[in-house]
Simulated assay, not measured.
Amino acid sequence: FSNNWKYFYDGIQRANGAIVNIPLKSPSADDKKARYVAEAKFLRAYFYMRLNQLWHGVPVYLKPFSADEATKGRETEDSVWRVVINDLTDCISEPNLPAKYGKGNANYGHITKGAAYALRGKAYLYTKNYPAAAADFAQVEAAGYTLFNGDY
């Protein structure tokens, strides 16, 4: 479990760095920078989701921090879910993030609105907000995602 803690907070630290620094320092076009920030928020939400699933409340850092600054107390489980849902809502609201990438697209495999809806739907299940979860899962289907039709 200590490795999970370390790896997830390392991912959070990297996502925080991207969220803060991409708009300030990247020479990319604004639409590309906005898409990358949305992707970083998705990743931060994923890491906090996994931490919350394991520990039911963890310290929350939404900006880059040093080892000496890593002294925050534990947040409640509900407040961590709010962070997860807020980050995923920001991701979904980003107009430069597509619903889905088609095969052959250079960004195929990157984060999409469909993935953000799926992860937010899962967070809503954990918070027992079943109508919101069902609505998000319907958006995953509307984005063009389907279950694998292979022969098991």
Rank of each mutant, 00 (worst) to 15 (best):
S28I: 14
S28A: 15
A29V: 11
D30M: 04
D31E: 13
K32A: 11
K33T: 06
K33S: 04
A34Q: 05
A34N: 08
V37F: 03
V37M: 03
A38Y: 08
A38H: 10
A38V: 01
E39Q: 01
A40N: 00
L43W: 11
L43Q: 13
L43Y: 15
A45Q: 02
Y46R: 04
F47M: 07
F47K: 10
Y48K: 03
M49E: 15
L51A: 06
L51Y: 07
N52V: 05
Q53V: 14
Q53C: 09
L54Q: 14
L54V: 15
W55A: 12
W55T: 13
H56E: 09
H56A: 10
H56F: 08
V58C: 00
P59V: 00
V60Y: 09
V60C: 05
V60A: 10
Y61T: 09
L62W: 07
L62M: 07
L62T: 12
K63V: 07
F65A: 04
S66L: 06
A67W: 14
T71E: 09
G73F: 10
G73L: 15
E75Q: 09
E75Y: 14
T76H: 05
T76N: 06
D78I: 04
D78T: 05
D78R: 12
S79A: 09
V80R: 01
V80Q: 01
R82K: 12
V84M: 12
N86F: 15
N86K: 10
D87N: 04
D87V: 01
L88C: 03
I92F: 02
S93M: 14
S93N: 12
P95W: 00
P95D: 03
N96K: 09
N96P: 13
L97M: 08
K100V: 04
Y101D: 00
Y101V: 00
G104Y: 02
N105W: 00
A106M: 07
G109T: 05
